[in-house]
Design a protein around this nucleic acid. Structure first.
Lengths: 209, 209, 209, 209
DNA sequence: AATGAATGAGCCTTCATTCAT
DNA sequence: GATGAATGAAGGCTCATTCAT
């Protein structure tokens, strides 16, 4: 399972590094641990990636390439009502955040970049985060209806994304406070709550304009 | 004895450790740096706190004991309308989250526990986080008005706290995406948005019941 | 095949290695740097020369074979007066020693052998140094005039060579002490001084016999 | 013998480092070897000297302090004839260069600085080399007799020092060429030769003026 | 003839910790 | 109560070398 196909050392290193970086963060992760899991020699990192940091960047790039396309697929087509598309967006976003059964570590890695940004931060913003915000902004713009007010739309984007991300960042907190662990099976319920809460919120703003 | 003010080495260590832990996190913080700032000897840590972790716990306990909850007391009295108290709560919370530059490293430390929980995590939950949630839950309960639905209240609590925390966790992201840095001067605006958005959200749920 | 000119990898390696060894010395020179300059693969060194040391020896042999002794031929013909031939010898020696900037790394390599002798030391002694000493000994012998006193001649050889080499070994020291850097344009002056000094020295010994 | 007085680790490190640096040069010397000989832990270097380089500088400073004074003592008093003082200077210089029975490595270390100058180079020039040159220049000035010609004096200084140093730099070369190893017992003979050679050289220049 | 990939040994440094005083 | 000195473990990295092709 862990070595799947006895691929190149390079691939095994990326795989192992992904896991370790996600588990411990860039600094705390040790090349020795990565190499042990990849069943490789420490010097191989220097050969293939020059650096611990080079390996880290390679990990992000590699997984970004193979992961972007499927993020949008869960959403519905553009001609559906904005409410429906909002719910689809939220559900899809929560899915990526809460799903713990996948190779998994890419999302973790991204989350880590927010608290301990490394040199890869900018890259992640542009390739992953900005498209996400833009997609959500379009939906909200439609919901507000009136002539666009960019600042207000941004605030709503952040309110919605903030609600979703909370279930990731505060996973341990929630578990501790309420003895409740959200998993895939809770997504419908969560998406429903956040969608309804947010639609209410957006309408309340519109009316106030 | 050697120092200008006979401030105990122990106190100086706690003070310095607070800063350093908040700046760099538990792991990245080094005993050497702490001791340098405290103008103390590395061995003093072992003497007073047994080890680095002991010092960390001491830092948290010390600050909790000296009652820094004062910041929360900015909220209005309990007999004001729930909407007003919600806004006060949000404003107060944002204040603690966004305030930068102060030597108030306790908040920073708490935030760090979410991303890199240490052995002190549970302690922080109980002494700081749970009271916060409870206070907010009371306000929301009043806003919903009907017989309490604990689950729904929790969801609202998390929606609100999630919105607020986003401005902390995603500080760098926001800065990068929108070239916008939220500081103390933006709190009114933010609190206004989140309050209105949340009241709208809560009402939308109530109506849907 | 991949290169512009089908110059054998082997030749390119020798060329590049010569430069790098001369610049940094045997130990400090890295195979990687050599291969980078030769646009070759690290493994090629092992293939062609067995190892780093083999490459080093190959460099020396290669250059010796291609007869770089031409520089010494600037000396005058044997039937000129000994004083004149001494000056020619000294000038020629200084020329080889002081000439900087040329790609002529063989001399540099030789000089390095004195401070950090490698396995090639003996080889260099016999092919380069001993002939030099012998040529100088002949001239001095003629200058002294009396029946040869081998020991005394040796001492003079070393006094002369010592004077010349100083301008190489102590290049940095001189530059630092007197803010003076000897180059090609100073050779006449230096050769003149050393020649006159040495002739005086030799005569003083002869008279003392 | 190696640990003499079970001194501080710091002293033992300086002692051991002196030997190792002298034997192998700064780069090739390994902290492991130094620590092994000093019976110390690698981390002690970081503690006492911060760095391998810090240790190196400490080695030079330490030994300079304890070694300068005895260099001049072998020379004769200033009111003796210049010829006599020249011979004393040369003998004293050769003594330092050829003596192999002393702690020994300080001279080696200095010599190394000429071929592979490190960050300590300037320091050595000013504290050791310049005084030496100045002392010799005074003697030569007196020998030349006429109004001083600074440039010519310098050239003589270098001719003399060059002759002496040759017996150090070319130790191996001489041994190889002539199967002759100069030691303390040869100093009288060498000093005699170099002195006579040099006096002849100087006179030859003076007459030529 | 030549190479890309991989290796193992070793490098310097840093860390939290502990000893003797 | 506090310290200077010293430690062992580990960290990231670089090196010359070799394997399989």
């Amino acid at each position: 399972m862990k070595e799947e196909k006895g691929n190149d050392t390079k691939d095994r290193l990326i795989q192992a590094a992904g896991e370790v970086f996600a588990e411990m963060g860039f600094r705390a992760a040790t090349v020795r641990e990565i190499c042990k899991r990849a069943n490789a020699n420490p010097a191989a990192i220097n050969y293939h990636f020059r650096d611990k940091q080079g390996l880290y960047l390679a990990v992000l790039q590699y997984h970004h390439r193979s992961g972007v396309q499927k993020s949008a697929e869960a959403e519905v087509s553009d001609n559906r009502p904005a409410e429906e598309r909002l719910e689809a967006f939220i559900r899809s976003f929560l899915l990526r955040i809460l799903d713990t059964g996948r190779p998994e570590w890419y999302e973790k890695l991204m989350m880590r970049e927010f608290s301990e940004p490394t040199i890869a931060f900018d890259q992640i913003i542009e390739t992953s985060i900005r498209p996400l915000h833009n997609r959500l902004a379009l939906i909200i713009n439609e919901l507000i209806g009136t002539e666009e007010n960019e600042h207000q739309i941004r605030s709503c984007v952040m309110s919605i994304i903030g609600q979703c991300l909370y279930y990731h960042h505060a996973k341990r907190t929630i578990s501790r406070l309420y003895h409740q662990n959200f998993t895939l099976s809770d997504i419908d319920q969560l998406a429903d709550h956040i969608t309804r809460f947010s639609i209410g919120g957006i309408r309340n703003l519109s009316g106030a304009l």
